[in-house]
């Protein structure tokens, strides 16, 4: 095993981790504010990938425009789901919301299969994204650098938003206590809607990244990355944005190194490894790496 191989594995871990982190942020934000594990989150990732495909293939949009479209589509779908499925059952037991999100997920997946068929699709990526760039002894594709940079920019922007803007502060207040937040004049439903919109937009961008990197997308592509991003969010500490980011990178790196460094006969156990890690982490650190033991809210 040589240094360059190891380095390229680390790079791959960073890329996969960036995508997991973006999806995990949404899980964490939504859980933080409504105590709901949104199973349909992985499907928004899929929708992001298809929105990318559509805006490249149909309207030949340049890449920054594609990015903007994907962000908007993701946010809109997130808002729609929240409005149609979750808001009507606000206040119901947690399990109800969880099953509702599974139902939403099944509806989206079948709708996707019906409309675009289950056949995987490839899409053409602009040539400049595939250009190889020498970086620290490695030849890295432009798209790989773009993924990591874009992810980091979005995450910094989000952290700044939540930390310093009025809406961000209000979202943190809402996540902590609905009633007191309402007494401040905060519209709870609006804050929940914003959390859904932001989280979904980020998941959609992760879908764009996944599609451009691997060049192939399908209606069910979001199931496993979605679940794994949830694992990442739990590892980091559900409810914490920095935790989700950390968990995303830890899981992405661990998964790539598990496959890359162990003998090939183990690589088939990739998924078992991820979920085994989840169970292990939950047992050792029930609140994840950065999560604090929060109050139990029904």
């Amino acid at each position: 095993m040589n240094g360059a191989y190891l380095l390229s594995q680390v790079a791959n871990g960073l890329i996969l981790g960036s995508m997991y982190a973006l999806i995990a942020i949404g899980f964490s934000m939504i859980y933080g504010i409504v105590r709901l594990i949104n199973f349909a989150h992985g499907d928004i990732f899929t929708i992001g990938a298809f929105a990318t495909l559509a805006s490249i293939a149909v309207i030949q949009a340049p890449f920054p425009v594609v990015l903007a479209i994907v962000l908007v589509v993701g946010a809109a779908v997130g808002l729609l789901i929240e409005r149609a499925a979750f808001r009507p059952m606000r206040g119901a037991p947690q399990v109800t919301g969880f099953i509702a999100s599974l139902a939403v997920s099944i509806i989206i997946e079948n709708l996707a299969v019906l409309t675009v068929s289950a056949q995987p699709r490839t899409f053409a990526v602009p040539a400049y994204l595939n250009r190889l760039i020498p970086l620290g002894g490695l030849n890295v594709r432009m798209i790989d650098i773009a993924i990591v940079l874009l992810a980091i920019i979005l995450m910094i922007a989000l952290v700044l938003f939540v930390r310093f803007t009025k809406i961000g502060v209000a979202m943190r207040a809402t996540a902590e206590n609905y009633d007191v937040a309402r007494l401040m004049g905060i519209n709870i439903n609006r804050m929940i809607g914003i959390a859904f919109a932001i989280g979904s937009a980020l998941a959609a961008v992760a879908g764009l990244m996944w599609g451009t990197k691997y060049g192939q997308i399908s209606p069910l592509m979001g199931v496993l990355p979605g679940l794994k991003a949830f694992v990442a969010a739990v590892i980091g500490g559900v409810g914490s944005i920095t935790g989700a980011v950390l968990g995303g990178y830890v899981l992405g790196m661990a998964e790539v190194l598990f496959v890359g460094l162990l003998p090939p006969e183990y690589s088939g156990y990739r998924n078992a490894f991820v979920f085994g890690a989840l169970i292990l982490v939950l047992l050792v650190m029930p609140n994840g790496i950065l999560g604090r033991s929060t109050e139990q809210r029904a």
Partner: peptide, 24 residues
């Protein structure tokens, strides 16, 4: 309405707690 049991926002700094009172 200043509710019973104090109910400061633990995730907000002291100043943020004050500012959020002026949310509207």
């Amino acid at each position: 309405h200043c509710p019973e049991g104090r109910q400061v926002f633990a995730n907000l700094s002291v100043t943020e707690n004050l500012r959020i009172g002026a949310y509207l």
